[in-house]
Design a protein around this nucleic acid. Structure first.
Lengths: 152, 152
DNA sequence: CTGCGTGCAAAGTATTTGCAAACCG
DNA sequence: CGGTTTGCAAATACTTTGCACGCAG
């Protein structure tokens, strides 16, 4: 999802395209990983003399609503946001790289294949499920491999 | 996991068995669903004249560490705890009833069957995954069904 | 009787709100 | 120009910490 698609979504939802909103979106597109609101703020303050943290909070939340950003779950109680190639329309999960924080949408989770089993065993009815997968992304896996070979 | 097993764990980990700790554990065992620290506090304050919220926080965290309680993830940024039949030793997931909040451990998730597929498609290496399943538990499903039949 | 547990107050951290001024369209 | 967006200050919500006293083992 490029910047043009994002701006299109802003227009469609009657949100104004301000320099700060542009910057937030650009920031996420250029840094494909998850960030806390504070981190986004720190990064953008370099370019903007006046930039309030509440502005960041407000916009990140807004962007999540309209599907430009997704929230990432961590066990600490903080907000994390990232871009995800897959928009809001497709129900999907996220792979999060434990090394670089990159977030990748995973639409092919055949949960159905195990749902029936669980329903039978618990005698319950499953209505939804949330999954987050962690590991090393393609790049980090490669890097890891090279590092190991270098050691030899 | 009954109260005796819990007390056994407390002893094993050199935690003292105080009336308040007993009460917290009993509370969770008698109300098989997830609670915020504040809810636990509110419920136990009835029995204890002096009971600090920090005590609840401290103990819930402690109990999570030693495997008496588990944390439940919700999209709001609050702490939720519950008991789970499955202890810490077995890696497992949770089924959470959207009606009554009951938490049930699910050890039979054959994630392995789909992990390979994801690894291949993303060219990544998966090291862990988190899953939470929601729906209606056995009792609530039954109740729902009865309600529907009654309407006819 | 020794050290862990607890209450209370206070601090800390993350997030939200109110409102006037600035700005997009 | 009108309504949205923003900065700033302040409030709020949740959680943790410090310390003196109390109690389990």
């Amino acid at each position: 999802m490029g910047i043009n698609r994002c701006i299109e979504i802003l227009k469609k939802t009657n949100l104004k395209i301000t320099p700060k909103r542009r910057a937030i979106i650009r920031f996420f597109l250029e840094n494909v990983r998850y960030f806390t609101p504070e981190e986004v703020w720190a990064a953008l303050k370099i370019d903007f003399k006046h930039l309030g943290l509440p502005t960041i909070y407000r916009n990140l939340k807004e962007f999540e609503n309209i599907g430009i950003l997704v929230r990432v779950s961590r066990s600490d109680q903080q907000l994390y946001y990232a871009t995800c190639r897959l928009g809001k329309r497709i129900k999907h999960h996220h792979f999060v790289c434990q090394k670089c924080g990159r977030v990748i949408g995973v639409e092919f989770c055949n949960f159905k294949s195990i749902a029936g089993d669980i329903e039978k065993k618990l005698n319950c009815k499953i209505t939804s499920h949330f999954m987050q997968i962690e590991g090393l992304c393609s790049e980090c896996k490669q890097r890891e491999k090279m590092r190991k070979e270098f050691k030899k």
